[in-house]
Every structure is written in C-alpha cells, then in structure tokens.
Design a protein around this nucleic acid. Structure first.
Lengths: 165, 165
DNA sequence: TCTTAATTATAGCAATGGCTATGATTGCAC
DNA sequence: GTGCAATCATAGCCATTGCTATAATTAAGA
C-alpha cells in the first residue's frame, strides 16, 4: 500500500468503507429486482382490470417495445413468476401473485406517504415509482406509522389508494 | 384492435396509461444517471477527505472491480465531469463539482429525513443510497420542510449530516 | 539507480435491457 | 371457411455495467 495523505490532515469525515460498500451492493441488488417487480405488479393490475394481460398492453404502459416485453416475460417464466401460453395472455403463478401483491402494497404505501407529506399526486406517483424498490421493511413500517398518525391527510389517502384495485 | 373485456366488467381502477408510462420513463431516466451521481459524489468525498481520489479506493468503496471504475471514469471524462491524467488521481471539473454538491446535498437530506422518521441510522444510510436518485425537487422540498418542522429529532440530524464534510 | 510493489490501462467476455425488422399465429368478420 | 388485422415470436443489433486476466506505468526503497 502506497503511503498517502492521512485523514488527520483534513477535518472531513468519511462514512465507514465497509458500511458504504454494503449500501452500494444493496442498491445494486435492488436495481436488479426493480424491473421484475414492475412487471408482476403491472401484470396483476391488468389482470384485475381487464381480466387479461397482453404483451402489447404491458409494452404500452411501460413505454417500451413489444419484443422487450417478450424477452422479459421469458425471463419471468423461467423464474416461475408467470405462465405464458404461446399467443395467449400472461398469467401469474402463485409465486408471481405473492410478489405482485407485496410490490403493490409497498408501492401504494410509498405513494400515499408522499401524498400525506403534501406532495402533489402527480409527483408522488412519479417519485413512488422510483422510490418503492429501495424501501426496506423498516422504512416501510415507518411510512405506515406516519400515515396512521396523520389521518387528516394520510389516512384517507391510504384507504383510497390501498383499495384502488 | 381486438375487442376485449371492457373495464366496466371490473370494479378495478387503473392509473391513466399516459401518466403511468411517464412515470416509468422518468424512472428509467433516473436509473441512467444514478451511477454518474454515485461516482461524482464519492469522488468529491474522497477528495475532501484524502485530497485525492484513486481508482482503487473508488472501486473498494463501491464494491466493484478496478477496471469497472476505469471504464466509468472514461465516460465521466468524456462527459466533462472529471479530469484524469494517466496514472494520476481523479479530479472533478467545475461541472463535476456542481453535480457532486447537488447530489451530496440531496443525499444528506434524504438520509436525515429517514432518520427523523425514526428509522435506524444503518437502514437510513442503505435506503437513502437507493432512494436519493428518485427524489424530485418537489419531494426534496417536502423532506426539507418536514425536517425543519421536527427540530427535536430532524433538526440536529440535518445539521450533523449536512455538515458532515 | 534499479528493482519492485502499487496503481492504472486495456482486452475480451457475459448478462441485462433496450431497439427494429420480420415472420408466425390467432381469431374476428365476412 | 377464408382473409385480414392484431398479436406474439424470433433474429440480430447496440449500449451499459459488471467481471477476469494481463500489460503498462509510476513511484518508493534498497
């Protein structure tokens, strides 16, 4: 190891390296599962609403091309989350349904929480879409607690949002 | 367009498709800039602390291999965010410093906000690392407002965190 | 000075997530 | 039943972000 400027030369404080690397690793892991969660959540919504989930609709809602969806669905099928019959719609397996339900609940809590903070519904919707995948169980509990403690704004929002489907 | 089950057959409510696609697009955009922000923020921290930022240190803190860092630094250099001299440390350009400062501030507000909600410091650190990149200006303002309104917990946390460097 | 350890650069590979273009299939309408 | 429009499958491309292995360069110490 080459000698270098000692930290005592600076009054700057740095987060512990081991802790920081853990944060980055966790975040990279979350990033990898984000897409999967988005898909199953969207498929569940479409199934509830239209009683079927077609590739074209998924593609249109995600804003990507249909072959992109086809490729991802293959992956989800090999992971046992969806069941696809050629030229038929997509269906969720039990495991897929469980993941979808978990993701949807978390998504709605995050979105309701942001609304309860006074953030506009549009911004809350956009930000929740990105934030939801990085919210740990502990943070989700804190959000829920906050919502319960502010019924004047949050309570109704949760009720309205959680009961959306 | 093939006729399909009408939505009136279900009491499920679906978010407007145009709005939803916008959320997903925004999130994909955010994901693309996440890494850049992580790098410049980390480089700024290392420069403040050690007066130099070496590839090996960046790699160690991010938990990735050194060639991964080398490749990314090339990209940051072509984007005008860092200046690298072969076999020398990395330095931030003015533009890089600005981005780093913005990212760092946002990061610290998010982390302090989570702490103020009663979330443990470890969890707050991990979750903030993932959440920060998906927090819009409006949401950041809401977080700041919340921190100012809860000085008993949040105020000190912000002060301590924001003044960390 | 000269060796050597640390650091950086580069080559090449894999997985992921996009895309366009095009062919295969299905199912409704006639 | 047949044809056509919609949908899905597949091929092949690109960019990104990770990796290992290895070469090149720097700088510290003997």
């Amino acid at each position: 190891m080459v000698e270098r400027a000692d930290s005592s030369e600076s009054n700057a404080v740095l987060v512990d390296a081991n802790a920081q690397v853990e944060s980055f690793r966790q975040t990279r892991n979350n990033r990898r599962s984000e897409l999967v969660e988005d898909y199953v959540e969207l498929i569940a919504d479409l199934l509830d609403h239209d009683h079927e989930a077609r590739q074209v609709d998924i593609a249109q809602r995600l804003g990507v091309a249909q072959p992109t969806v086809a490729k991802m669905l293959k992956r989800l099928a090999t992971e046992g989350l969806v069941q696809q019959r050629r030229y038929r719609g997509i269906f969720l397996t039990v495991e897929g349904k469980n993941l979808a339900e978990k993701s949807r609940e978390r998504h709605q809590i995050v979105e309701a929480f942001l609304c309860a903070l006074g953030i506009s519904p549009e911004t809350a919707r956009i930000d929740a879409e990105g934030i939801e995948h990085h919210v740990s169980a502990e943070t989700l509990r804190a959000f829920t607690t906050f919502l319960e403690q502010t019924p004047q704004k949050g309570g109704m929002a949760v009720a309205a949002t959680v009961r959306k489907i």
